[in-house]
Every structure is written in structure tokens, then in C-alpha cells.
């Protein structure tokens, strides 16, 4: 299992797409940092004359929105990377017949699937965590005083833990699909579900703003079908909701959360991912390759 896991990590790292992803991520971080720098500078200049609650609320709103955008985009590229790398995890090996020489070794099918999952999950979770902290540090550091939000280290740890659930679920789901479908079909199914969850999340937030329960319920159902967007929303709650701050800046806009997923949703997402891994093993156990 560990050998397959190690090989999966090595394979991902050796691919050109990995290098391109790293370069593009660095470019994105550079652009984000530049935007934050100027937003912080101009915000500080414009805010010199303003004082009191209104100016404070404006600063908090803009800062949380910009951090929300950065994290949302990070969540998006992590998700795409997780989907693209996991939907071919098994099917790609089967169609190329590379799997033959691995599976004829004295390892079980479940060890193979677990190895693939662990390798991909490790890499994608590491990527997600790195991206999360890069965005936070850029925002809090380069954005300087005007842009900085009151975020405690413990909040960051809680938030990043939930942020990392997204690649965990996506990789588990992608591997499950790849045990039964071709890479293309699995990719289409995963992307559509991700898109539906994404739209469902926005509908839920919009429903909460206009206080329409039916819209909120649609979002909740989508979260149950594919608990990805809800994890992003939960992460923003954990990150922005300062206990010391009576004005919860989590109520900030579409990139943060208005309708708040409960803790049970976090457990649901973890169980969802774990169930997908178990089903992957079961699905691949007796399959012809």
C-alpha cells in the first residue's frame, strides 16, 4: 500500500502538469499579493479621514471579501486539481494496462486502491494547506494594517482543517468513479457535481439573504449530495467569526457565509469521503482489469 502511495506521489510530481500547476499557483499568489498590497495601501489612504463604526465596518467588509475571494479561488483550483488527478487514478492504469504488472504482485486490490487514494490525498491536502496559509500570510502581511483581520492561530488551524476536507472528499470521490468509469466519464461526472455544489452554495447564500427557506434547502440538499461548497462556507465561519468581535464579519458577502453549515455537516463530509474510499475498495475488488 505504501509503495503504491509513494509511487502515486512520485508520479504526480514527475508530471509536467504538476510543474505547470506550481508555476501558475505562484503567479496567482504574486497577483493576489500585488492586489492586496495596493488595496491595503489605497484603503489606508482613503480611510485616514474616516473614523468610527462605519469606517471599521467598511474596512472589515472589504478585507474579509478580498480574503474570501483568495480562499475561494484557492478552493476552486485545489478542487480542479483534485478532480483531474483522481479520476484517472485507476481507470488510467487499467486502460494503459500498466496496472497488470502491479496487481500481479502479492498485493490486494484494496491495498492498491488505498495506496492510490493516500498518495493523491496526501499531495492534494498538502497543496491545499500550503495555498491556504500562503493566502492568509499574503493577506495579513502584505495587506498591512488596513487589510489585516483579527484572526487567531487557533481559528486558522480549525479553518484549514475544514479547508483540507475538500480535497479529501474530492479525491475519494474521484477514485471511486475511476474504479468504474473511464477517465473522461468520471471527469465529467465529478465536474458536473462540483459545479452543482458550487451553484447550490450560492443559491443557499442568496436564499439566506432574501430569507427564502426553499432556496436555502436547495443548497442544503446539494451539500448533502456533494459536500464541497458547504466545507468552504464552514471554513469561512471558522476563520472570520472572532469570539472577541461582536460584529461577526462572517456575514460578509457571497465569498463568505451567511447561511452557516453546522458541525454535523463537517462530520458528514468526512464520513462521505471515508464511505467513498470504502466503496472504491468494494467496487474494484472483483472487477476485471
Amino acid at each position: 500500500m505504501w509503495t503504491i502511495g509513494k509511487l502515486t506521489v512520485k508520479e504526480m510530481i514527475s508530471k509536467r502538469i504538476f510543474l505547470i500547476t506550481i508555476i501558475m499557483t505562484l503567479i496567482f499568489l504574486a497577483l493576489y499579493g500585488t492586489a492586496i498590497y495596493f488595496a491595503g495601501k489605497e484603503g489606508a489612504e482613503a480611510g485616514d479621514g474616516g473614523q468610527g463604526t462605519e469606517a471599521f465596518l467598511m474596512q472589515q467588509f472589504v478585507a474579509s471579501q478580498l480574503l474570501g475571494v483568495g480562499l475561494y479561488f484557492s478552493s476552486f483550483i485545489t478542487a480542479l486539481l483534485a478532480i483531474m488527478s483522481s479520476v484517472s487514478a485507476i481507470s488510467g492504469e487499467v486502460s494503459s494496462h500498466q496496472i497488470d504488472t502491479w496487481l500481479m504482485r502479492p498485493i490486494s486490490r484494496s491495498q492498491f486502491v488505498l495506496g492510490k487514494f493516500l498518495g493523491l490525498a496526501f499531495l492534494l491536502i498538502a497543496y491545499a494547506i500550503s495555498l491556504f496559509f500562503s493566502i492568509i500570510f499574503l493577506h495579513q502581511g502584505i495587506g498591512a494594517e488596513w487589510m489585516a483581520l483579527d484572526i487567531e492561530p487557533f481559528q486558522m488551524i480549525k479553518a484549514v482543517s475544514v479547508f483540507a476536507i475538500q480535497p479529501f472528499v474530492l479525491v475519494a470521490f474521484g477514485v471511486l468513479l475511476s474504479t468504474r468509469m473511464t477517465t473522461l466519464n468520471a471527469g465529467i461526472v465529478a465536474i458536473i457535481l462540483y459545479g452543482a455544489a458550487f451553484i447550490g452554495g450560492f443559491i443557499e447564500q442568496f436564499g439566506a439573504v432574501v430569507e427564502k427557506t426553499s432556496l436555502v434547502n436547495i443548497g442544503i440538499v446539494m451539500s448533502l449530495v456533494f459536500p464541497i461548497d458547504s466545507m468552504y462556507r464552514k471554513m469561512t465561519i471558522l476563520l472570520f467569526d472572532s469570539a472577541d468581535n461582536p460584529l461577526s464579519i462572517a456575514q460578509g458577502g457571497m465569498f463568505t457565509s451567511i447561511s452557516t453549515p453546522g458541525n454535523i455537516m463537517v462530520w458528514y463530509a468526512v464520513l462521505y469521503g471515508a464511505a467513498a474510499v470504502v466503496f472504491s475498495i468494494y467496487s474494484f475488488k472483483n472487477r476485471d482489469v
Binding site: S14, S96, D100, T101, R105
Partner: peptide, 20 residues
């Protein structure tokens, strides 16, 4: 069974190995 493959070697007809 995994045990049946412990003392086995195999060269497939469609030999494809990770090219990286």
C-alpha cells in the same frame, strides 16, 4: 489470492510500464 502470486513472475503481452 495474494498468496498465489507470491512466487510468480509475469511479462504481459501488452507490456506498458510507467514511462516517468
Amino acid at each position: 489470492t495474494t498468496k498465489s502470486r507470491e512466487q510468480v513472475g509475469y511479462l504481459p503481452e501488452l507490456f506498458r510500464y510507467p514511462d516517468w
